[in-house]
Design a protein around this nucleic acid. Sequence first.
DNA 1: ATTGCTCTGTTCGATACCGTACACACTACT
DNA 2: AGTAGTGTGTACGGTATCGAACAGAGCAAT
Lengths: 254, 254
Amino acid sequence: MQKIIDTKITPLQNHLLSVLPDEVKERLFPFVELVKLELGEVMYEAGDTLANVYFPVDSIVSLLYVMESGASAEISVVGNEGVVGIALFMGGESTSSRAVIQSAGYAYRLKGKRLTEEFHRHGKLLGLMLRYTQSLITQMSQTAVCNRHHTIDQQLCRWLLLSLDRLPDNNLTMTQELIANMLGVRREGVTEAAGKLQKLGVIDYHRGHITVLNRQKLEQLSCECYAVVKKETDRLLPHGNEKFYYHSQNVINL
Amino acid sequence: MQKIIDTKITPLQNHLLSVLPDEVKERLFPFVELVKLELGEVMYEAGDTLANVYFPVDSIVSLLYVMESGASAEISVVGNEGVVGIALFMGGESTSSRAVIQSAGYAYRLKGKRLTEEFHRHGKLLGLMLRYTQSLITQMSQTAVCNRHHTIDQQLCRWLLLSLDRLPDNNLTMTQELIANMLGVRREGVTEAAGKLQKLGVIDYHRGHITVLNRQKLEQLSCECYAVVKKETDRLLPHGNEKFYYHSQNVINL
DNA sequence: ATTGCTCTGTTCGATACCGTACACACTACT
DNA sequence: AGTAGTGTGTACGGTATCGAACAGAGCAAT
């Protein structure tokens, strides 16, 4: 299913795409396709062979591990700062994680073949992908440690901040049940933690819609993990020029 | 400090080095240096700029995160199946993790410059490094999930198996205190878990020396995390030819 | 208005792990 | 033999999280 829309969306809204040298942009952009991602859709399952990579624009994708028991835990988040499908260029073709749309929106899709062709032509893109991958590794590592040492309250704050950074405003569409899956805890645990934040006036939520009212306080209440990851990511991937141009284009459903 | 020893050690005992094409071996091996690693030594601190990568032969290196509070947790282990210092070729130059020698032994050191030079000359080495990095990512992810969902008992089993795979025999030199640091739990927790394994006749240990008596049982008692990581690693990095040749060579202390 | 469904709030006992404290055992050194 | 130091065993209360069960509240469709 395709339709042409007049959007305010451009590949440049993805940080990785926006910092590429102009010549690489010129070669690559004709081949990227705009894809619409719906909340809860599964982008790929653990073990799937990947054919495309996705550069989120205003969507958020959650990488999560599912255990034999069915219990799950999010190991990292990807928004417009990153790319989904690193296994494709890392050479493994698949991963043992599942990718789920955590926040609906758009992403640009690129065929894996185009990507790897570009790798051989010019090292810039590869270098960028690798630095991004390293920042992802940082996030995963910090998650591992955070799971071990920090309370649900702290982790919820961390998680909200991670989401906030990848959204255009302060509203996230997300039930407590889903957050619980991401954090790998019971839904009741999230209810309790969210209740505290509500009482403190930090957030406001109603049936699957959360609004962050006081970001600063959220940062105070969060564990160090958020800041550590942010700092390291900024080091690895300095922000590029963030001016955008808009145009009409095709949209495809995932 | 240097001395020439007659060892039974060769670069081929490291799996990554051993699967390289002959031409790459010929270019690279003249530049690798044998390094002796002592138990407990810190290979690099979080944030250190890396100048070398290390290919362990019979040593084990633990990558661990240290939090502001001083609490720590191991996020992955590297033995002769891998390489320490991926940040160097990922482009980040440093990581937020610390690398500690978990089991004394030898490793081959290669200047980062030599490594990246080889990347430009021939894609084989890069591809291998990237696939290894992906297997490392798998390990980190699984660790994150394991920290969330599994008991200390299960995790101790997993940890012992990870160590066992990287050692020549069934003996590991390791106090409960150190294991506790790796797992990010209290020493008493390890004492208790180890006590159970002792009673079951699975392990035998005395003041910092652990002998695994029944590996099969250990695998049964472990959580799935060990098997998942092993399977994925085998997929990403098929074993090469493991015949070795021996010769005299220099040894350097770290 | 009724019904049904999803999302949230609350309770209760169970349990895994923590923090603290201390006793004991083995080893090495004097 | 005595002493110091390191590694291990155990005990106790405190707490965060779990598992299960259920009640209510908001929303949608009929």
